[in-house]
Computed example of a mutant assay.
Amino acid sequence: MSKAERDALDNKLSQRFIHLDPAGYFIIYIDHEQQRIWMKHYPNAINEKGLAVDPQTGEPIPTKGKVLREPDVVLSGRTAKELCIELFEKERKFVTMFDHAAYLGRELMRAQFCLDAGIDYIQD
């Protein structure tokens, strides 16, 4: 399979329906100057339609545009492995679903690759 075919497959799989983790979600970004990967965790609730909603207001959390919420936790690390240990081997449970854990592992590896390569990272 060529790289173009793998990219097309990944793009197709990114469009599938996913169940959202009731423990919340992460926004991941990198800081080239500090040479760190950053993660902001936001709690959410899941409504009867399967949408992520603000647990305080019950309003759906938009998937595009600026969201004016404060994270409950901010984590940073130098590597994907360092952050995965923080996420999955500590007492606080940020993730309650295996597919969410796998997604975060993939995204953190992509973020580390971009940090190492000196290129921009955009979370999938």
Rank of each mutant, 00 (worst) to 15 (best):
D99C: 01
L108T: 00
L83C: 01
D120P: 07
S76Q: 14
D31W: 03
G50Y: 05
H19N: 05
I28G: 00
M109L: 14
P71K: 06
E107C: 08
K81N: 13
K90L: 09
F26M: 03
R16P: 02
Q34N: 11
T57P: 02
M39K: 01
S2Y: 02
L75T: 02
H41N: 11
H32G: 09
K3F: 13
V74Q: 14
M39R: 00
F98A: 10
E59K: 15
A8N: 10
D7I: 09
E107M: 09
S76H: 15
N44F: 05
F113T: 15
C114P: 03
R16M: 11
M1T: 10
A117I: 05
E89D: 12
G65V: 07
P62S: 08
K64Q: 12
R6G: 03
A23C: 13
N44R: 15
I119L: 03
I37Y: 04
Q56F: 13
D124F: 05
G118D: 05
R69L: 11
I37M: 06
I30Y: 01
R16S: 07
Y42K: 04
S76T: 12
T57R: 03
D99L: 02
M97S: 07
K93T: 12
W38R: 13
G105S: 09
Q112D: 14
L87M: 09
L104I: 04
I119V: 13
N47G: 08
E33K: 12
M39N: 01
P62I: 06
L83I: 05
D10T: 13
P60M: 08
V67R: 13
M109P: 00
M109Q: 09
A111I: 05
D54H: 05
G24P: 02
Y103E: 02
E59N: 12
L68A: 14
E82K: 03
L87F: 13
L108F: 10
M39F: 02
K12A: 13
D120G: 09
E89K: 10
G65N: 05
T63W: 10
S76M: 13
A102I: 07
K12V: 08
R78N: 12
N11C: 06
R92C: 05
A8Q: 12
K93H: 14
L51G: 01
M1H: 11
E5W: 06
S76L: 09
G77W: 03
M109G: 04
P62Y: 12
T79Q: 10
M97N: 04
H19I: 04
G118K: 12
P22V: 08
I18S: 01
V67E: 10
V67A: 12
Q123C: 08
Y42E: 01
R78T: 14
Q35G: 07
L104S: 01
P62Q: 10
S14H: 10
Q112F: 04
D31A: 12
C114A: 15
N47F: 09
I28D: 00
G77I: 05
D116E: 14
Q56H: 14
T63S: 11
P71Q: 11
A8Y: 03
